[in-house]
Measured scan of single mutants.
Amino acid sequence: MTEYKLVVVGAGGVGKSALTIQLIQNHFVDEYDPTIEDSYRKQVVIDGETCLLDILDTAGQEEYSAMRDQYMRTGEGFLCVFAINNTKSFEDIHHYREQIKRVKDSEDVPMVLVGNKCDLPSRTVDTKQAQDLARSYGIPFIETSAKTRQGVDDAFYTLVREIRKHKEKMSKDGKKKKKKSKTKCVIM
């Protein structure tokens, strides 16, 4: 069974824990209790493949930012979460993405942009803004509501699919490099 290491990042209060708990335990946590770091595991079937999701729910508070490099190193894919009623959390996505790329030393890291709290009427981040940002990053965008469960499975499952595509691409690139290195030079 394939294991996928997913990391949920975003500013404090955007609903990272609520999304994760909704996926794992099928219930909505409405009281806000700032996370330092929590880890969850769940076995699911995605596109006919049974897999184990190892999900790291991270601290959004700035005082825990020193811990970010460590979990970013171990993560295979990242859910970059903002709240649709919090423009600052949307603007912060850029910083999370840049930090992930720096730590992973790669421009090509599996990510999904997630606009959470889409059940709320007080939207300050337009869907088109988020779609445009995701398009500019070359990553999928999904709106979710941890409260109603809308888009929750889709967000995590899409990230797994992005990781699969990335692994497939990397193995193809690896095979191309191996083929090239088999060419021999004969000096007579």
Rank of each mutant, 00 (worst) to 15 (best):
L23A: 15
L19Q: 14
Y64A: 15
D33S: 11
L56R: 03
P34F: 14
H27N: 12
T2I: 08
G48N: 12
G15W: 00
I46Y: 09
K5G: 11
Q43G: 04
H27C: 12
T58E: 02
A59W: 07
E3K: 06
K42D: 05
G60H: 12
F28G: 02
S39N: 09
V45H: 09
E31G: 06
D33V: 10
T2V: 11
D47L: 04
T20W: 02
L6P: 04
V8E: 02
L52I: 13
G60D: 13
T50V: 15
L52N: 09
P34S: 03
G12P: 06
G48W: 05
C51Q: 05
A59F: 15
E3Y: 09
H27G: 12
D38V: 04
H27T: 11
D47H: 08
Y4V: 12
T50D: 04
V7K: 01
Q43A: 04
D38R: 01
L19W: 04
Y40N: 02
G12Y: 08
V8F: 03
G60N: 10
Q22K: 10
K42T: 07
D33K: 07
G13F: 13
D54L: 01
D33C: 11
V9K: 01
Y40A: 07
G10F: 00
V9H: 07
P34N: 00
Q43W: 04
I24W: 12
I46H: 07
G60L: 06
T50P: 15
Y4I: 12
Y4S: 10
L23V: 08
P34R: 00
G12S: 10
K42Y: 06
Y64G: 15
T58S: 08
N26A: 13
N26H: 15
S17M: 00
K16Y: 00
I21D: 10
R41W: 05
V9T: 04
V29Q: 12
D30P: 08
P34Y: 04
I36Y: 03
E62C: 14
S17V: 01
E31R: 07
L56A: 04
P34Q: 03
P34K: 01
R41I: 07
Q61Y: 12
Q22E: 07
L53H: 04
V7H: 13
L52Y: 11
T35Y: 03
V45K: 12
L53F: 11
T2K: 13
T20E: 14
V7D: 01
E3L: 08
Y64Q: 12
I36D: 01
Q61V: 15
D54Y: 08
T20G: 15
S39Y: 04
G13T: 12
T50I: 07
I21A: 14
V44G: 10
E63D: 14
E3H: 10
V9D: 06
D54A: 01
L53Q: 11
H27R: 14
F28Q: 01
D30W: 10
T2P: 08
K5A: 07
A18Q: 07
E49Q: 12
C51I: 05
D30V: 09
A18V: 10
I36N: 01
R41D: 06
I21G: 12
Q22L: 03
D38G: 02
S17K: 01
I21F: 13
L6M: 13
Q61T: 14
F28W: 09
I36W: 02
V29N: 12
L56C: 05
N26V: 06
V9A: 10
P34I: 09
V44S: 11
E31C: 09
T20L: 14
T58L: 03
H27I: 12
L53P: 05
R41C: 08
V14S: 12
G12T: 07
E62V: 10
N26Y: 15
G10H: 00
Y64H: 12
Y40V: 06
D57A: 01
G10A: 09
K42Q: 12
Y32Q: 01
E3Q: 08
T58D: 02
T50C: 14
G13A: 12
